[in-house]
Deep mutational scan, measured.
Amino acid sequence: KFNKERVIAIGEIMRLPNLNSLQVVAFINSLRDDPSQSANLLAEAKKLNDAQAP
């Protein structure tokens, strides 16, 4: 279950337009470290993406 959620979360994070490459890598590394947190990490990535919108 967590592996599928992690793959989906990674794909979504990679498509967030307002994150820089270091932020994307940090979120992906966090997902690798704890796949059970996929939903929480994706939500945090989306919040950061929205906050950094031009």
Rank of each mutant, 00 (worst) to 15 (best):
K1I: 12
F2G: 08
F2M: 06
F2R: 04
F2P: 14
N3K: 03
N3I: 06
N3M: 04
E5T: 04
E5C: 08
E5W: 05
E5M: 06
R6F: 15
R6E: 15
V7E: 15
V7T: 08
V7Q: 14
I8C: 12
I8D: 05
I8M: 09
I8V: 09
I8G: 03
A9F: 15
A9I: 07
A9T: 07
A9E: 03
I10H: 03
G11M: 14
G11D: 09
E12D: 09
E12S: 07
I13L: 07
R15E: 05
R15K: 14
R15C: 07
L16M: 12
P17I: 06
P17L: 07
P17G: 06
N18V: 01
N18L: 02
L19R: 00
L19G: 01
L19H: 00
L19D: 00
N20C: 05
N20W: 06
S21W: 15
S21G: 10
L22V: 12
Q23W: 02
Q23Y: 02
V24E: 01
V25M: 13
F27Y: 06
F27R: 00
F27W: 02
I28S: 02
I28F: 04
I28D: 01
I28Q: 03
N29R: 06
N29E: 10
L31I: 13
R32I: 13
R32Y: 14
D33N: 11
D33M: 11
D33S: 08
P35M: 09
P35V: 07
S36N: 06
Q37S: 05
Q37K: 13
Q37Y: 05
S38V: 15
S38F: 14
S38Q: 07
A39Q: 08
A39L: 12
N40A: 05
N40Q: 13
N40K: 15
L42A: 03
A43N: 10
A43L: 10
A43P: 01
E44Q: 14
E44D: 03
E44N: 09
A45N: 00
A45R: 00
A45I: 02
K46D: 02
K46E: 04
K46V: 07
K47F: 09
L48N: 02
N49A: 03
N49L: 01
N49P: 01
N49R: 00
D50F: 11
A51L: 10
A51W: 10
Q52L: 06
A53H: 07
A53M: 09
A53N: 13
A53Q: 09
P54C: 13
P54A: 13
P54V: 13
P54Q: 10
